[in-house]
Design a protein around this nucleic acid. Structure first.
Length: 572
RNA sequence: CGGGGAGUGGCUCAGCCUGGUAGAGCACUUGGUUCGGGACCAAGGGGUCGCAGGUUCAAAUCCUGUCUCCCCGACCA
């Protein structure tokens, strides 16, 4: 491809609203343009890379027996009511009405549609397992789109679904996908980690996220390299030292705490109650009911854990008025002692503790000598946010916490959709049983952006060979010099014939401009044809990730081309 | 939704406080000189100052409303 004939609008300056490196560089290098908040146009360079990423994904999905579909993005309300997600998806789902006034949505994911196909057409266990997938546009009305392609409202997802007769089958399908995902991300040149994750709105039994560690990510993962433990902090647990409590009074004692509103206030004189001896009482509205969430004073709540424990599809912190009318006090003086009729969830770290301090549900008063389990009866659950340095749950090694970006997520859905939507098959015993399902997603544009986050420098992008828009940038430095021109054209022909994808910068620009643009766009190899080297019968060969320029004869280049061509031909 | 910031040629921004009829750099067009890391000179083209209303002789500038975008918190590929 000749640069002069291709649309590559590079910019010297990054747009003011770009924050993360991938956003700045993809815009500057002419890969994307923003149309609206969280909605991007893909330009030709990016489309080439995305095509390569998709080819890798197809290759690996087909390798595990995946069959490609293409399902509609538009979807009728009735289908989503069957699974309960018409309301369950909440505001994140784009909804619209057709001319007759019928409700439709733009699908965020396709469990419902695939399940509907399966239930209509799959009748026997003999037809299972099935792996169905598609690469398709998804719509999500994100409350806060941000960071360029990292969090958007319209994006391309590879989503696949496995249908098995039994749970062992699901385990096999899940592992097959895990291995396919490992190969996909490896081939895309990404360093990734797999972490245990919360299943969230998808429902289901277990899930694994494929994460890339980067500051541009929005998730936090806790891990220890030696023990191999890794989990999203929404799911991560840790071992913390036990607290020694003194024996307290027989029953809780109320004491005045005028003006105390926070855990920190109670730590101050004259009270001097360490946060570790306090019970933090948070009130949430979960599916329309108030729920108390109890934690040690110095611990933080993970809302996802609360939601999972409470079986929530919809939750938010309760409003002060709601709290006052239910408990008789405002935040700052809340506690679980004496509370009737509300679900009480308490974090494991409070189990076995005695002589604790908590709010008295009377403004300006607290209780001391409180014993969880004696003075109130909670449901014991995990609610606590793990912190760096705490010990992992297995190997007892200290955890690290890092920011990460989610590229893929695989779920053991189980019977979540087959049961609610009636997708069953007949087993060998002639009895109907619901299909055991899994679902598996990859964000295609996120792979592109994650690659830039991982591989860039001050001058621009460094594409891995496998997903670069072209493999080679061919730069004639003096395009009007006959010998330079002739050599460049010859190289272009040879490279193309060898199956190498070349971007020939045939513009009548000064060498500096071409070098700058080449570095910015970030093709893996740069071949420069200039009068200097040509005088020795050579051209310059430089890898984008190296500072060294090698002078090569045209014969040397032929060998390099053969290697490159073979790489390109394999799509990696 | 809660909190913070910003909308002025394609991009980055100044002008606004203290109203007086719109400017710089980059990009673009033409001519010339240059030519190995984003050249220089000259001459050009291009802007409803987000939108609506108000105040005023006069509004980019002051007031009100509204829309959009970005950032920080709760959701997800």
């Amino acid at each position: 491809m000749r640069y002069s004939q291709m649309f590559i609008p590079t910019l010297k300056e990054a747009p003011a609203d770009a924050q993360v490196p991938s956003h700045k560089l993809l815009v500057r290098a002419g890969f994307i343009r923003q149309l609206s908040a969280g909605i991007y146009s893909v330009l030709p360079l990016a489309q080439r890379s995305l095509n390569k990423i998709q080819a890798i994904i197809r290759d690996e999905m087909n390798a595990i027996g995946g069959q490609e579909f293409h399902l509609p993005a538009l979807s009728p309300r009735e289908l989503w009511e069957e699974s309960g997600r018409w309301t369950g998806m909440g505001e994140n789902m784009f909804r619209l009405k057709d001319r007759k006034g019928a409700d439709l949505c733009l699908a965020m994911t396709h469990e419902e549609v695939f399940t509907a196909i399966a239930r209509g057409e799959v009748r026997s266990y003999k037809q299972l397992p099935q792996f169905w997938y598609q690469i398709q546009t998804k719509f999500r009305d994100e409350p806060r789109p941000k960071s360029g392609l990292l969090r958007v409202r319209q994006f391309t997802m590879k989503d696949s679904y496995s249908f098995d007769f039994d749970w062992e089958g699901l385990d096999r399908s899940y592992e097959a996908h895990r291995h396919a995902y490992e190969r996909i991300f490896e081939r895309c040149g990404l360093t990734f980690v797999q972490v245990d994750a919360d299943t969230g709105a998808m429902g289901g039994k277990a899930s694994t996220e494929f994460m890339v560690k980067t500051d541009a990510g929005e998730d936090l993962i806790a891990f220890n390299v030696e023990s191999g433990y890794a989990a999203n902090v929404e799911k991560a647990t840790s071992v913390i030292p036990a607290e020694e409590d003194e024996t307290g009074p027989e029953k809780p004692e109320k004491f005045p705490t005028p003006g105390v509103r926070t855990i920190e206030d109670l730590e101050q004189p004259p009270f001097e109650v360490s946060a570790k001896r306090q019970i933090k009482t948070l009130v949430y509205m979960v599916n329309g009911n108030l729920v108390l969430a109890l934690l040690r004073g110095d611990h933080e709540l993970v809302e996802a854990k609360l939601a999972a424990a409470a079986g929530s599809t919809d939750h938010r912190p309760a409003h002060p008025e709601e709290i006052r009318s239910a408990l008789g006090a405002l935040p700052g003086s809340l506690g679980a002692v004496g509370v009737r009729g509300l679900k009480i969830l308490a974090d494991h770290a409070l189990q076995g503790r005695t002589n604790m301090v908590t709010g008295a549900n009377e403004d300006g008063f607290h209780l001391r000598g409180v014993v969880p389990g004696r003075d109130f009866t909670p449901e014991w659950v995990d609610l606590r946010l793990v912190k760096e340095g705490e010990l992992d749950p297995k190997g007892q090694r200290p955890l690290q916490v890092a920011k990460a970006l989610e590229l893929g997520h695989i779920f053991k859905l189980g019977l979540r959709y087959s049961q609610t939507m009636g997708a069953t098959v007949l087993g060998p015993d002639g009895k109907e049983s619901p299909i055991v399902m899994g679902s598996y997603g990859i964000g295609v544009e996120r792979i592109l952006a994650a690659s830039v986050e991982l591989h860039h420098d001050d001058d621009g992008i460094l594409w891995p060979m496998s997903i670069a828009p072209f493999q080679v940038a061919l730069l004639p430095l003096q395009p009007n010099d006959p010998q330079v021109k002739e050599t460049t054209e010859k190289l272009y022909q040879q490279l193309t014939a060898a199956g190498v994808e070349v971007l020939l910068d045939d513009r009548d620009e000064r060498p500096g401009v071409k070098f700058k643009d080449a570095d910015l766009i970030g093709l893996p190899v740069r071949v420069a044809v200039g009068k200097k080297a040509l005088a020795q019968g050579k051209v310059e060969w430089k890898k984008r990730d190296s500072k060294e320029i090698e002078l090569k004869s045209l014969d040397d280049l032929q060998r390099e081309f053969a290697v490159l061509g073979a790489l390109a031909g394999r799509g990696r």
